[in-house]
Design a protein around this nucleic acid. Structure first.
Length: 271
DNA sequence: ATGACGGTTCTTAACCGA
């Protein structure tokens, strides 16, 4: 079977429901991981999403900020959620695809929303940047109770770091801009190396090519200026690499009505 | 290029995002 997994920072799930529907009907992902849902669990729009075919929904939300969700056509089990690295933020949820789902059974999905890190890339003066680096350290350690183990597992999410020179519109201009500073890129590399995680997007789109998933709301003509960054990622445990199919970045979603500043990414996985 | 935007709430101002 082929499973399509999507990741999308939607910047308010309630406000974005029309384009979540549009994307779900266009890409028809089996698993849709959302970040920045910005809603308390009791106010999560379950029924609207079930209507799109996602009968299995696991969420970790908080009021106004952050929040992650896994929407699935397949049953989910063994969910882990809750604050991942101090601050009490809802920035991680993981679940395993349930038994009785054929070849997909046992696949674990991790959905992360890594802290943006504020403006100043210095942990000594900027607590948000300090938190970002600590969060990445926690991802490197992979707390046992979160099952962040690189076996039959997928890590997706808004990791808020653009690691390659081709992941930003200007490497030189962004070297001191949070999301592309060397200290973050090095921490990001440590997380990936610790698990041997494979950067699935760059398995399909050559690292020499520019690739973005985010364009600032502040750019008056985002597409023409094209000053984007690749902040959203899909990682695979090495055992899944042989099954990797198409990767798609839905750049067009940035031009939809009332868009998120991030676009969805999908990965096909043969299991 | 630290913002010309667009979310949120203790809303009509302040805070946050990246």
């Amino acid at each position: 079977m082929t499973l399509t997994i999507a990741s999308w920072n939607i910047n308010s799930v309630r406000l974005r429901m029309p384009i979540v529907k549009r994307f779900a009907e266009t890409a028809r992902p089996d698993i849709l991981c959302l970040q920045e849902t910005k809603v308390r669990d009791e106010d999560f729009p379950f029924s609207d999403l079930r209507e799109l075919g996602y009968d299995h929904i696991e969420i970790s939300g908080q009021k106004g900020y952050h929040g992650v969700a896994i929407l699935s056509r397949l049953p989910l089990e063994e969910v882990t959620r809750g604050p991942f690295c101090r601050e009490g933020h809802a920035r991680h949820i993981s679940a395993r695809i349930g038994a009785g789902t054929g070849a997909a059974a046992g696949l674990r999905i991790h959905n992360f929303y890594v802290p943006a890190g504020g403006d100043e890339p210095d942990p000594a003066v900027n607590p948000k940047f300090d938190h970002k680096l600590d969060f990445l350290d926690a991802m490197t350690r992979g707390p046992a109770e979160r099952h962040l183990v690189p076996e039959r597992a997928v890590v997706v999410g808004d990791l808020n770091i653009a690691p390659l020179e081709t992941d930003v519109w200007s490497h030189k201009a962004l070297l001191k801009v949070v999301s592309h500073t060397p200290v973050e890129v090095e921490a990001f590399a440590r997380v990936r190396a610790a698990g041997g995680w494979v950067d699935a997007m760059r398995e399909r789109i050559p690292p020499a090519e520019k690739l973005y998933t985010w364009w600032s709301y502040r750019s008056p003509d985002w597409s023409a200026a094209d000053k984007g960054r690749r902040l959203d990622h899909v990682w695979l445990s090495p055992d899944l690499l042989d099954g990797l199919g198409a990767i798609r970045v839905f750049r067009e979603a940035r031009g939809w009505d009332k868009p998120s500043d991030h676009v969805p990414v999908t990965a096909e996985l043969r299991l």
